[in-house]
Design a protein around this nucleic acid. Structure first.
Lengths: 160, 160
DNA sequence: TCAAACTGGTTTGATACAAAACTACATTGA
DNA sequence: TCAATGTAGTTTTGTATCAAACCAGTTTGA
């Protein structure tokens, strides 16, 4: 409790000019992780502008590019999204003809994913935005970047 | 492109056993930020179990606790959520009588927020979970914690 | 002093996401 | 060999979130 005058504290509006106290939140990694992720995401979207890119697209296209023939399940794991989240993203990408799939004779449940030439082109554009965005982040974290990525990766490895 | 045999590469399924290549994503802070935030969030929910807590609740309750009389707008800024996201959270908290509000005579558009005794109790429970969760994170980041938080805060300050 | 611009909060609409239930196929083991 | 179990992908359902439009009250400046 931060007010001593209890009778008044019950109704008095906190002055907007006073700084907001975060208490224990101040020292919680999880809290700052959420704020930073949200800020980074918004900044990325600002950069790409209106240019028709759902936020999931970039990672998905990049992963397919680097792993031609990857299955939706493997893609889901690599991109850190649930398989049920990947389904509509792929439907959209297939519909836009940015991605192509071929059935897997060895396992009829599954299929293999590839980028079309249009998909490669789209990826190139998004990659330029992503590179620019990451340059901003690089400037912020400076020479601590590798350390930062190492720690983030550890969080994922241990908690996930 | 990672396959040289083009004619086959067009349809061959990538073996699930092969490691997935992330390419440039590997070195993007933003990408790992998202994965880590998602992992941390899931871990927190695992800890709190079914116990009826919308994820927004903890931060909101804690901030009101530390800033009695805070307005919804200031709360929205401090918690990093849009004002339109705060509205339904507050409606729920008011309905559950965990939060109480009093009108602001100086500005009739706004009002002041306070925790009820039940709200304080609820917060105490959630705080215990959060503390436990953060202990896990502490172990992962070790002595780099302050550095980590400093960097995350910088990302928010610069990009937001 | 009062119209214009601004601000706090709510509503509405759209999107992203996960969890669980489901379908179709595949693997296992008695 | 075939029933039980497991796995890939989809559908359904529920929630969190933001943005934009909106309303009411406040501030500004001519």
């Amino acid at each position: 409790m931060d007010k001593t005058d209890i009778s008044k504290a019950q109704t008095r509006v906190k002055d907007d000019a006073e700084p907001v106290l975060l208490g224990e939140l101040e020292n919680y990694v999880g809290f700052h992780l959420r704020l930073a992720q949200s800020a980074s995401f918004k900044a990325f979207r600002r950069l790409t502008g209106e240019s028709s890119l759902r936020p999931g697209w970039f990672a998905v296209l990049a992963i397919i590019h680097h792993n031609p023939g990857i299955t939706p399940m493997a893609l889901s794991r690599a991109s850190g999204r649930d398989k049920s989240t990947i389904t509509p993203v792929l439907r959209e990408l297939l519909h836009e003809e940015l991605v192509r799939r071929s059935t897997n004779p060895a396992d009829k449940r599954s299929y293999a994913l590839f980028l079309t030439p249009a998909g490669e082109e789209k990826l190139a554009h998004l990659a330029a935005c992503a590179a620019e965005h990451d340059r901003e982040l690089d400037e912020i974290v400076g020479d601590k970047k590798q350390e930062m990525i190492r720690l983030l990766r550890r969080i994922v490895a241990v908690l996930d």
